[in-house]
Design a protein around this nucleic acid. Structure first.
Lengths: 210, 210
DNA sequence: TAGTAAATCCCCCATCTGTAGTATATGAGC
DNA sequence: GCTCATATACTACAGATGGGGGATTTACTA
């Protein structure tokens, strides 16, 4: 967790002007310490050495990895890092895609310094800065099939488990052997850290994994 | 279901003045046909012969059955009848109690004719007329242990089933034998018409039976 | 008083479930 | 080319589960 000291920020932004301006602004007080990177590759290279409280990532990075791709890479490392995406237009779909890929919020590039600082503050304090419209869309869809580590097939099996289907019924519906169903279920249990049908159904429904 | 024709109403109200006024008002148009009763006993006696779309029941009936007691009697008949309770004060607790006992909404007696008609209209169309404050209280508590046919003990067992507890764990936590647990679960399955843990957990969570 | 529902307990037994271990083919990523 | 995840498939076994009975006590109700 982030302790009392200044929050460590990482800014990934290809436009030199925007980058230096934002860095300057964020470093102007004692609240933040901001490192800036020209592209995702440079940031990912240095990531193992730093521990940022918040990442500010341009969604439209120039050549190389896009912001969303970089975001996925970051999440693949297994570290839970807060990322706010920087975008020019508040385009619902791309912002929504970023949130699905793991972003905790976003910031419009045309935002005023005050707004910038407010968004960063919110994000550092565990908030999820976004517009109400995006927020509503997020809450209704966000948890469906994203943060769960199950494969496509496993999700299918899980859905049937929740319907109350037995191994046999599942195997018949999916045209696979009962053994395979058992293997899938074994993997589902491992991934979700449960040990019975009741638990898996409970978890799946409550966490909207299906 | 109520078809196109005028909605059949039944009004149970002990105050002769209020009774005749409300009846007059409700019968003034072609939307409703309202029968009025002086007490719950008279209504219950005639109930087998009629099929009201909506019952308007005074919560503070004079001698004999109270409105809430009458409401319970109505529900004991097994017929699913919409009942709007009539109350003088919007007293949270008594209104809430009425809703828990099976009322679909309530009407303040001091309401204007327009409000009365609106509440009746809402109730006939499947609404649940009540204040937002009551509504919030209801949605959070209403489904816990009311419309489900399970006994107290069965609900306890059901909750544990949903937690993923095995027969053995349940028996140990409740200080009863495994046999008793099995019997309870058998009854739960019968009442909820399911045949496995997965189904019962799914149903219980989705229908907020726990 | 008879009947009913709830809560407690027991038996038998077929089937299902969870766990463990092994194995093959495939495709994506490094 | 190697590794990892996925999807497929199998064997074996202990223990859990679900369905079928039957039984007793208590408490409320008709």
């Amino acid at each position: 967790m982030s302790n009392a000291g200044p929050f460590q920020l990482a800014l990934i932004e290809d436009d030199p002007e925007v980058r230096s301006l934002m860095k300057l602004l964020l470093n102007s007080g004692t609240d933040y310490y901001c490192r800036a990177y020209e592209n995702a590759e440079a940031f990912l290279k240095e990531l193992p050495l730093i521990d940022p409280d918040l990442i500010l990532m341009d969604i439209d990075l120039g050549p190389g990895l896009s912001g969303i791709e970089a975001l996925k890479k970051i999440h693949q490392t297994g570290r839970k890092l807060n990322t706010v995406m920087l975008t020019i237009h508040e385009d619902d779909d791309s912002v929504f895609g970023a949130l699905c890929a793991g972003a905790t919020g976003y910031l419009i590039k045309g935002a005023s310094p005050v707004q910038l600082l407010e968004v960063v503050r919110q994000a550092c304090l565990g908030g999820a800065p976004m517009s109400p419209r995006i927020a509503r869309r997020v809450v209704s869809t966000f948890h469906i099939g994203q943060s769960n580590p199950l494969s496509k097939r496993e999700k299918e099996v899980l859905a049937m488990l929740c319907e109350g289907d037995s191994y046999k019924e599942i195997s018949e519906k999916l045209f696979i052997s009962g053994s395979t169903v058992r293997t899938h279920i074994k993997h589902i249990y491992e991934k979700l850290e449960v040990h019975s049908r009741a638990e898996v159904v409970s978890k799946a429904i409550r966490e909207k994994l299906i």
